[in-house]
């Protein structure tokens, strides 16, 4: 099944604009509220393997982008289900009913980007330890400034120079 035929079948889903990126990779943009149904549709179509939940911070357009990276073993095809959510209210529903492993990916997205996934039972942080700052993967968190004013300001214990 070539990319074009699969693209047409995906395009049948209302509100999905499909774009063939390159051989074996298709991008599917879907409005936020239809994300869950689009994922169920793609899963029924054959894209059963959730590779990862990628999260991109488009700070200029003031939006977070959630990319559900799906792969179908039968059709040997990758589909990126892309959903945009507003940056000031980063909330989205969980996909754990379709893929239970989404819990770990969503936990990581919550900790690194601050996106809250409703109805995800275990959104506790597991990588950083008592982190009171901005979620680090956001574009407005500057790592070099953080290093300068937190670590470089600490003097040497035995009085060495900086």
């Amino acid at each position: 099944m070539s990319e074009q035929e699969i693209a047409e079948r995906i395009a049948k889903f209302p509100g999905a604009d499909v774009e063939v990126l390159r051989k074996g990779q298709i991008a599917v943009k879907v409005p936020a509220e239809k994300g869950h149904d689009a994922a169920a549709y793609l899963k029924k179509m054959g894209f059963a393997h959730l590779v990862a939940v990628e999260y991109v911070d488009w700070i200029k357009e003031n939006e977070f982008e959630l990319v559900y990276n799906l792969f179908s073993y039968k059709m040997k095809m990758r589909a990126f289900l892309k959903v945009r959510i507003p940056r000031d209210k980063p909330e989205y529903i969980t996909f754990m009913d379709l893929w239970p492993i989404a819990m770990t990916h969503e936990r990581e997205a919550h900790e690194m980007m601050g996106i809250v996934f409703r109805k995800n039972p275990n959104l506790t942080p597991f990588i950083l330890e008592d982190w009171k700052n901005l979620p680090p993967m956001r574009k407005d968190f500057d790592s070099r400034k953080y290093v300068k004013d937190k670590y470089d300001s600490i003097p040497f214990a035995e009085g060495g120079e900086q």
Binding site: L21, R22, Q25, A27, V51, A52, E54, V56, V67, N69, F71, R78, F80
Partner: peptide, 20 residues
């Protein structure tokens, strides 16, 4: 401008890079 994903079969499983 664009995005791409590449997967590799590492000794522990599927290791993939999503680059924008």
């Amino acid at each position: 401008r664009g995005e791409a994903y590449a997967a590799v079969e590492s000794s522990k499983g599927e290791l993939g890079y999503y680059v924008v």
